[in-house]
Nucleic acid binder design. Structure first.
Lengths: 234, 234
DNA sequence: GACGTTTTAGACAATGGTGTCTAATTTTAC
DNA sequence: GTAAAATTAGACACCATTGTCTAAAACGTC
C-alpha cells in the first residue's frame, strides 16, 4: 500500500497529525457511503462532503475510487480482526457456569463482531461487491470474520477435551453455534437495524440453550439440565 | 402499474405471445444483471443485450429503470412465494422416520428456496438496496422468504402437539431450524456459489441432527440422547 | 399483398460522475 | 514571520448512462 509518505519525503513529522485525521475522516465517511450506496452508487462528492473535506483532498490521499475502496475494506477488516481477537480472548475457557458464560460470550461476540457497524459493512460489501472483487472473499475468509468459525472450533475442542461439551465435529459445532446466535438477529441485521442489548441477550440465551441441549455433557453433576420451559429474559 | 395494454387497445390477441416472451426475457435478464451489478451498477444497455433485445424495447415495456426494477422484484418474489408453498406442502406432517424426513425436507427447502437463483437474488437485493427501497423489507417479510419462519413455526407446532417434538417456543425453534440448515451453507451462499447436492444433504443432516438433539421427544426409543427431565410443575 | 403493430438501430440532449488542473487560501513547522 | 506543505473551490475535459425521438425494418393478421 502506498502512503502519503512515499510522495512527500521532506514533510515534517508533526504535520502528519492533521493529515492523519483527514485520512481517517475520509476512511470513515467512505465506509459509511460505500455501505449505504454500494461501490457504484457511491460518489466521491458525497464521500468528501460527508467527511467535511474537499473532493480534491480525497484524490490527493487516494488516487482513485478503486484505491479508496480497497483502503476502506482493508481498514475495516483490520479493525474487525483486532476486535475479534479481543472478544475471542474472553471465551470462557474455565467456565463457572458454562451455559451462562457461553451466553455472555455470545452477547459480546454478536454485539462487537457481528451486529456492529464494521460487521454490517463487511457482510454487505462481501455480498454485493464480492463477485466483482473476488479478493474480498479471500480477505474475508483469512483476515475477516470468516476466521470466527475455525477459531471457535479450536476453543470448543478444548472444552470438549475437558468433558464440558460432547462434540463430534468441532467445525460443525462452531458453525452451528454462530448460526444459532444469529438466528434471532438475522432479520435485524438484514434490515440494517442495530439490535438492542435486550434483544442480544435474548438471542444469545435462546441460542446457547439449544446449543447446550445438543452438545452439553450429559452426566456431570454441575451441568445438570435445568428444564426451563419459559424464557422470560430478565 | 401501467401495462402495454393501456396504450394499445386495438392489438390483436396472438401478437401478445411474442410480446410476452420479450417481457419475460427482459425480466429474466434484468434480474441477472441487477443481482450481479446492483441497481446503480446495472445499465439498461447491458440488460437489453443480455435479453437479446434492443434498448428501446426495454423502454417500451417498462418506462424507466426504477419501474423495471420494481417489476423484477415483484416477479421474483411471486415465483419464490409459489415455490415456497410448494416446498412447505412437502413438510413431513405424518413422518415415518422424523429425522430422515426432516432432513429431506431441509434439503428441498435449501435447494429450492434458499440456495437457488431467486433466493440469492432476493437476499442480495434486500441487503444491498433495502435501505433505499424500504418497501423491499415489507415485501420480503410478507410476500417473500420472510414468511418461511412463521410458516415453519406452525408446522412444528403440529408435530409438537402430537408429541413428536418438544418445543417451548415455536417461532424460536423455526428460526433456529432455518439457521442450522444455513449454518454449513452460509459460506457458499455468501460467495454466490451454488452448493452441490451432496453439500446440501450433508448440511441438512448436520442441522437436523442438532435440531433433534435439542427438540426431539425424549420418550421414544430411537431418540436415545438428551434425557429431558420433565418439569414436575402443576 | 396490405395494414397495423412491434421491434430495431442510431442519433440525440441532458445529466451526473470521474479524475485533472490551477490559483488562492489555510495550516504547520521552525 | 516565513517557507513549505496541505487544503480548498472552481473550472474543466471526458465518459457512461438515462431517456427520447425518428425512420426503417420485421412481424402477424387479414
Amino acid at each position: 500500500m502506498k502512503t502519503i509518505r512515499d510522495t512527500v519525503p521532506k514533510m515534517s513529522v508533526h504535520s502528519q497529525r492533521g493529515q492523519c485525521a483527514k485520512r481517517m475522516s475520509i476512511l470513515e465517511a467512505a465506509a459509511e457511503v460505500f455501505c449505504r450506496q454500494g461501490f457504484a452508487g457511491a460518489s466521491i462528492d458525497e464521500i468528501a462532503s460527508t467527511a467535511c473535506v474537499s473532493r480534491q483532498t480525497v484524490y490527493n490521499h487516494y488516487r482513485e475510487k478503486d484505491n479508496l475502496f480497497t483502503a476502506v475494506v482493508e481498514d475495516v477488516m483490520d479493525r474487525a480482526n483486532a476486535m475479534l481477537f479481543t472478544i475471542l480472548s474472553t471465551f470462557p475457557e474455565d467456565p463457572d457456569n458454562l451455559e451462562d458464560d457461553l451466553a455472555g460470550f455470545a452477547v459480546r461476540l454478536s454485539r462487537s463482531c457481528i451486529c456492529n457497524q464494521d460487521g454490517k459493512f463487511l457482510r454487505k460489501l462481501v455480498q454485493s461487491e464480492g463477485e466483482r472483487y473476488p479478493h474480498l472473499f479471500e480477505s474475508w475468509r483469512q483476515h475477516g470474520p470468516g476466521k470466527i468459525g475455525t477459531a471457535l472450533a479450536a476453543l470448543f475442542s478444548r472444552l470438549a477435551h475437558r468433558d464440558l461439551l460432547q462434540i463430534d465435529d468441532f467445525d460443525v459445532a462452531a458453525r452451528q453455534f454462530l448460526a444459532l446466535v444469529n438466528a434471532d438477529l438475522q432479520m435485524s441485521t438484514l434490515f440494517g437495524v442495530t439490535p438492542t442489548e435486550a434483544e442480544l441477550e435474548n438471542a444469545a440465551r435462546n441460542a446457547v440453550r439449544t446449543f447446550m441441549r445438543a452438545y452439553g455433557a450429559p452426566a456431570t453433576d454441575k451441568t445438570r439440565r435445568t428444564p426451563v420451559l419459559n424464557m422470560t429474559s430478565s
